[in-house]
Design a protein around this nucleic acid. Structure first.
Length: 182
DNA sequence: AGCGTCACGGTTGAC
DNA sequence: GGGTCAACCGTGACG
């Protein structure tokens, strides 16, 4: 009762995490996003015209955080935290990867260095951003290597993309809550 | 008093 | 399997 059920908010951790207490007396976990219900509450209260400073005090969340979440909600329509962790694809962005897939599909015999050349020629990348030959071949290995179902991969990618866009277009709390429990 | 912004210490996860 | 590193997190402080 002193602490919210943190394990419930962070089911992936598998064990109850220790929360820390901020100046307002609110519980937070350093480095981790605020629980979804708090984020939702912030947006909901703002919707009702409640001022950020009041939200901050009432929910015991720093005003910097309230400001950030509200700001992001206005921009993206989403209350969800950004993707934490992971690293950028080294050398190849998803966009470039897609191009590589296209090239490869059109010309299955194409070499990595040829693809690299074409990326430059087509203006997909400039000399600074173009991935290395080894990076391209790694991408191809991971995309085409061993499995012949790359079209399914792409299909799924596009499906996810359109789902995401759809979700953003709604800009409604209900839409967000709908997929909250993943 | 309220708000925007940023440095900080922290976590995460693809590479 | 473990290390690296760049993304994100919320707090707290400053203007």
């Amino acid at each position: 009762m002193m602490r919210p059920t943190l394990a419930q908010n962070y089911p992936r951790s598998g064990f109850p995490l220790e929360g820390r207490v901020n100046q307002l007396g609110g519980v937070f976990i350093n480095g981790r996003p605020l629980p979804n219900h708090i984020r939702h509450k912030i947006v909901e209260m703002a919707h009702h015209g409640i001022r950020p400073c009041v939200i901050s005090r009432q929910l015991r969340v720093s005003h910097g955080c309230v400001s950030k979440i509200l700001c992001r909600y206005q921009e993206t329509g989403s209350i969800r935290p950004g993707a934490i962790g992971g690293s950028k694809p080294k050398g190849t962005t998803p966009d470039v990867e897609k191009r590589i897939e296209e090239y490869k599909r059109e010309h299955p015999g194409m070499f990595s260095w040829e693809i690299r050349d074409k990326l430059l020629k087509d203006g997909i990348c400039d000399r600074n951003s173009v991935p290395s030959v080894s990076s391209i071949s790694r991408t191809m290995r991971s995309k085409f290597g061993g499995r012949g179902d790359e079209e399914e991969d792409e299909e799924e990618l596009e499906r996810k993309e359109s789902e995401e866009n759809d979700r953003r277009a709604k800009h409604s709390i209900e839409g967000i809550l709908g997929d909250r429990c993943e």
